[in-house]
Nucleic acid binder design. Structure first.
Lengths: 161, 161
DNA sequence: ACTGAAAACAATTGCGA
DNA sequence: TCGCAATTGTTTTCAGT
């Protein structure tokens, strides 16, 4: 299998991961390619899954969820079926914005949004205390998000495979 | 000031925060509006900052950063200038994908990507051990990201203000 | 694999309701 | 604020290098 992307693709990705509404012409001007070529490359990147998704970022504040919490969750036992069940629960819980299965201090780290602290308290009662799989949790209240989103440093792939 | 968005805007945002490459016609079909109306609403949502950004999500694996860590960082002292200095450092560090200033167990939670564990070790030496402002840090290795991104549950705003 | 022109498609603007 | 129609702009396809 050939290298999945090259230096130009990397530059295109750097641009669209900051703003995917740039026209292919604007991108092309920057990287020195015709809009057609840019278009074709982006299509390939999307089809191959290197570009996973294209999304709008909504301001949590503006839609009435100004408070966010990072929660470290520990399960009673690290058993595959319990972990999978908890993953499913997470997926179907709207208050959970993102979540990670981790090793270390906790089993899961989840990001929860709420209308206010009371709202979050209600959430914890429903979500944590009523779930027998959960051993405990620690809440970290988010005061400020310094970097937003998930921008990845994209480098040209190593030419020596 | 009038309510910033209504039920239809909420439905549009639900759609574009999952996929912002939907055409306004597709969205309009779903919510019962002409493509023109959808377009106009999206423009307003973007201009007003309710929709903060439009971005492509790149697969970290595909671009050679298959390992991610969540790191809980504690500073030596919680002084405004130290916190601000650390925020600036975070912003300019490419390995740091996202970061949050928090209260609780730690002062910051940051997400770091790396090529492999060795690469991460090097990063910690450079980033943590050489920074006198840092008291300590705990690494949680991300095994799986269950939900990707930052989808927010958007509700119709409360009609009673 | 690229460019450039033509065709198809989507977004924007103007207008009347 | 809406929908429709016309305009503008963007993306895609196709032929040629």
């Amino acid at each position: 299998m050939a290298r999945a992307y090259d230096r130009l693709d990397a530059r295109i990705m750097e641009m669209i991961q900051a703003n995917n509404r740039l026209t292919s012409e604007e991108i092309g001007r920057e990287v020195g390619l015709s809009s057609t070529a840019v278009q074709r490359r982006m299509k390939k990147l999307r089809e191959s899954g290197i570009v996973e998704a294209d999304v709008s970022i909504i301001s949590p504040k503006a839609v009435g969820r100004p408070v966010s919490m990072l929660v470290l969750v520990s399960l009673e036992r690290e058993r595959a079926d319990i972990i999978d069940r908890f993953k499913r629960t997470l997926r179907s819980t709207r208050e959970v914005m993102s979540d990670f299965y981790v090793t270390g201090e906790a089993d899961f780290v989840i990001m929860v949004t709420a209308r206010d602290m009371e709202d979050y308290e209600r959430f914890t009662r429903r979500f944590f205390y009523e779930n027998p799989d959960i051993k405990g949790f620690k809440t970290l209240v988010v005061m400020d998000r310094v970097k937003v989103g998930f921008a990845i440093p994209i480098e040209e792939p190593d030419p020596n495979v």
